[in-house]
């Protein structure tokens, strides 16, 4: 299959594979992520979806927003579910019972369903080498059940299970770097993306689908309810996350790291934190140190990534 050109005018002529009428909140980032992932390619896709906002709001009783075969799975096992579908498909093709239509397989999961509870099944599916892609839409908390902290929740964020108050000033820990943990699995393709950079996101999806084996994409998905922000700022925040290097856009292809979008000017992290009510307390005078701690962490992660990317470039040049 030829890779589809990523021009907005051409893309707009195509049919969406994720329909309107879904019940995500107004201005939610997750459906934008899903539509961009599905739009990037014309390959037939079968998806599994872990329980979470996306899953419960996209398929309710006889109403489904999906225009692809889609299976609901439990909170903890979307990777296991889709790996089973993929294995069955390969077997049926091998037995000559169905034609190979170059079907691609995706598991969608939220950060809770991916970083935490579904991590074991994700890790297993990656290790077994299934020809599948796992897409985590990371909104930084268990949003569907009322904004509980996850291991993806950023440092300092106010959630219902790490409430900012007299006892603690929001989440005391830094977030887990799942993208790097997935890299440690030695799988052929890993990427981080943002719906604010739609072209970069879609290029990564296209690349991933041309690679056989397990792929992992971590995509930031703003949630105005949990982030305590405005209903119109999902794309603005998705872009700020990249411009502040809070959410760097990069890929790791066969072990070689490459930053795919380098911000022209690295903005201070507060530009990303300030519009979000979940970080409001960090701007109080007594919590000033938290802003520095958050910035230092982002700086250290970004510096390390740049070094890894430079090493990757050098390796390619050799």
């Amino acid at each position: 299959m030829t890779t589809k050109p990523l021009r907005l005018k051409e893309l707009a002529k195509g049919e969406d594979r994720f329909a309107h009428g879904h019940r995500m909140c107004a201005g939610c980032g997750a459906p934008i992520v899903v539509k961009q992932v599905l739009m990037a390619t014309d390959y037939p896709i079968i998806a599994a979806n872990a329980t979470g906002c996306l899953e419960v709001s996209s398929c309710i009783q006889e109403y489904t927003a999906w225009k692809i075969p889609w299976i609901h799975s439990a909170f903890e096992n979307s990777a296991a579910t889709i790996s089973g579908v993929e294995a069955m498909y390969r077997s049926l093709v091998k037995q000559g019972k169905i034609d190979d239509k170059q079907v691609k397989f995706i598991a969608f999961g939220g950060d809770g369903g991916t970083y935490d509870i579904g991590f074991q099944s994700l890790s297993g599916a990656m290790e077994r080498g299934h020809d599948m892609m796992y897409v985590c839409y990371d909104n930084g908390a268990y949003m569907n059940t009322g904004i509980q902290r996850s291991s993806a929740t950023p440092f300092g964020a106010n959630t219902t299970t790490c409430p900012a108050g007299d006892v603690i000033p929001g989440k005391p820990q830094q977030r887990k770097d799942l993208t790097r943990i997935m890299a440690a699995h030695g799988i052929p393709y890993i990427a981080q993306a943002s719906p604010g950079n739609w072209m970069d996101l879609m290029k990564k999806v296209q690349k991933a689908f041309e690679i056989r084996g397990p792929k992992f994409m971590n995509i930031i998905a703003p949630c105005n309810r949990g982030w305590r922000s405005r209903t119109d700022d999902a794309i603005t925040l998705a872009k700020l996350a990249v411009e502040t290097c809070y959410w760097p856009l990069y890929e790791i292809e066969n072990g070689v790291t490459r930053v795919t979008v380098k911000p022209k000017e690295k903005k201070p992290l507060v530009d990303f934190l300030k519009p979000q009510g979940r970080f409001k307390h960090m701007f109080a005078p007594e919590n000033e140190g938290m802003l520095k701690q958050a910035q230092d962490y982002v700086d250290a992660q970004w510096d390390r990534l740049l070094k890894e990317s430079a090493a990757g470039e050098a390796e390619k040049a050799e």
Partner: peptide, 8 residues
């Protein structure tokens, strides 16, 4: 029915 959410 694919995309039946359009009825909602």
């Amino acid at each position: 029915e694919a995309g039946s959410s359009a009825k909602f």
